[in-house]
Design a binder for these strands. Sequence first.
RNA 1: GCCCGGGUGGCGGAAUUGGCAUACGCGCAAGACUUAAAAUCUUGUGCCAUCUCGAUGGCUUGAGGGUUCGAGUCCCUCCCCGGGCACCA
Length: 874
Amino acid sequence: PLEMAKITQKNFYRQLKQTGNAYAWKNKLETYNPNYYKWTQWFFLKLFKAGLAYQKEAPANFCPSCKTVLADEQVIQGKCERCGAEIEIKFLKQWFFKITQYAPRLLRNLEKLDWSLKVKIAQKNWIGKSEGAEIDFRLFLPQVKRFVILHGKGASPKDNFYLWLKSELKKAGFEVEVPKLPNSFEPNDVKQTEYVLKNCNLDENTIVLGHSFGGIVALRLLEKGIKLKGLILVATPRTDKFLDHKKRPSVSTALKKGFNFKIIKENCRNILLLYDLKDDVVPLSDGESFAKELSAQLIKAIGQKPHFRFKKEPEVLNICLPSIKIFTTRIDTIFGATFLVLSPFYELIRKNDLAILPEAKEYIKETLKKTKKEIKDEKTGVFSGLYAINPATNKKIPIWISDYVLASYGTGAIMAVPAHDQRDFEFAKKYNLPILQVIQVPDLNNEKNILDKAYEGEGILINSAQFNGLKSQKAKEKILNWLKEKGVAQKAVSYHLRDWLISRQRYWGPPIPIIYCDKCGTVPVPEKDLPIKLPYIKNFKPLGTGKSPLANYPKFYKTKCPICKGLARRETDVLDTFLDSAWYFLRYPSANNKNLPWDKKITKKWLPVDMYIGGAEHSVLHLMYARFISMVLYDLGFVDFEEPFKKFRAHGLLISQGAKMSKSKGNVVNPDEYIKKYGADTLRMYLMFLGPFEQGGDFRDEGIVGIWRFLNRVWQLVQEIKIQDQKLKNKNSKLDKLMHQTIKKVTEDIENLQYNTAISQLMIYQNTLQENLKILSLKHIKTLLLLLAPFAPHISEELYQVLKAKAQNQKSKQFKSIFEQKWPKYDSKLIREDAFKLVIQINGKTRDVIEAKTGLSETEAKELALKSPKIKKW
RNA sequence: GCCCGGGUGGCGGAAUUGGCAUACGCGCAAGACUUAAAAUCUUGUGCCAUCUCGAUGGCUUGAGGGUUCGAGUCCCUCCCCGGGCACCA
């Protein structure tokens, strides 16, 4: 790629120069240059340190042909933005930028921007804000009747979260016991176990929750042969390694006996472990070792207080009464929610070993083999084996798993309301799930409102208990408040925008500056070590193993940990090259600065960009990324503007033979051929003359000779003209008027990107000059050349030199360039017409047109009109 | 399905606020130059009628309706083309 880039860029630069584009060539840059991508990597580090770059395991768009993952924006209609292959969903660990954190601002700022409406709307839709609610649907726990909570060392039933948890569980309809265990300060697990056996009601409908030392007691109960429905260990020690173990001889003694895990597992099949990441008493590793021995699910969380010692610990309640959070914009239809649907990638299913059916597990595996298109084409799903409780109706509803629910939107779970959502309707029909109508269909006389498809509109509520008769809008508000009071719902906003996936398993891109060390974890490369150069390797083809080709080069990835200096491994994925282009405008003015990404003073002078012109295809790609990066840099104090481009205009796309130009279609129009035949000026001017700049169209060369002829006539004009005596000056007011009108029109049209009409005005002007060849003065022709210069720079410059030589009596001399002359100004007094055409219409039809002098009064104009002989018969 | 553009001569396209629709260019036709062709220049060129043959009348901006003295332009309904997004709950 490096060699190829150098060849293609050479040709690219040649063509840009040849077409007469006046760029500041001193300030050019190439993003593959280590001097440039050094700073791209530097951004990554800045974002990483600001908590805006993170790694996560998530379903990602994977292109099987490019063999890399892609960002959401880079999937166009289910296909790869680069190669067009059908995208698959793979569950992989990748790096992301938290662009979603900026979603509200990216949306809000749009209003202030002077951008093509098209692009603003595209961005708005892509960010896709929806307002609604998040609602908790509690899981239905079959056969569970009773909770027994065992407190820890030195505690009593009144301490920590016990009282609160007891009341919450009671509210949910369970029996709860919290025994006061004997000798709490110097507890003996044998004695406490005996106490529980004697005093508590334990059976196969009971879940025991043990907190800290209470967990050891719980395990002993199972060892004794007690069978339980479930066991929850909250921060229970496995080893006596915790900080002040010397002060806890009782715990050490209890642990020394060890556990009979085999019997424990036999007596209880549902075991969940909850450990606090910031625990200052029991290390997380205890939870990990328990999880291994008990083959149980370990949930890592952060307690309100370390070791879960606060009065309210929602994480603990969540374990006892797991619930599924859904997002909806139609809370008014909640009484019609007859089932829940989870995405196959829903966190709970993946991470918690809920009692889901084997066929559901199989389904999740199968989903990973499908392409996006296959998923879309047919709705499939499977019953999970679980049930939830609809918080509005308190009814038990089944939980299904289906890939028609996206993991990456909302919470990854939905309440299905088949009567009022077409997708849910189709799903319910296919799998024979109940459909309950809760909104009246207007204009339907039939009282039963039988539905053969979902009614998705709003209306009056039915089958919704106390909310019957309300209109959707009002009902949304009331139901939300009702569920809020119950503590199971809250207002929520969801965005369509996803975090920006920036890892690529390609070769060509800046390596992600991260080092993995067994001891120190994920370590950012120190800034002084940048750039991490992309090595020159022979086999750069993608591997298809989910890893970058760099993963085959130990020379690249073997490194030392910057912290402990031990052996470590570099990240081998590279950064999305869209990140390179997300900040290049900042680099242009300071392109030659070796020590900084940009010079503060120069940046202040030149940026933000006044006017930016590009393709609309970058609406949600480059333009969104660049805005995000600018906002981050602003927040971090590196630049003093949030928005990089004040004004943006999208040029139209020129297509060829009815399709986008592409090498594979063989319909590429090569400018070189036209330059060879007609010259660069003709080509560039023809492109401008073709049609409205912002519209684009099919490229045909049928009219190109028109421009060629026009430029030839201008050429002839300058050759033929004889510079007159100054006497003739100002004699021809008609020509002067046209000249000033032309200056005005061309100036304004250029500013509005209406090049086609500017050129047509130049043609009119040129034609008139030709007709009045004998009475032309220098200014007329000079103005023509000045106005023509931006369109046809080469010929204008040459003719300008000829003209100057003529004007100064043929002395051959090098004159200043036309591009150093001032742009002509028009005199608005001279533009005003002194005559106008008085159009006489009768019943909207033109019956006569009379030449009239300006400044007539209404009566005078009427009189004049009535004199027209033609109107008499009308 | 939703959201943007757009639909005007044979073609690319013009048309400030509603006020001569078709500017400018291509193409085409006739003429000039030429032995001839190309190039160049000049003139003409929306469609349909009518006749006394250079005028007169009518029609025309995707379709239909409306507002107005007057609509390519404003309002309503619909059709077609291009682009974007799309199980987004």
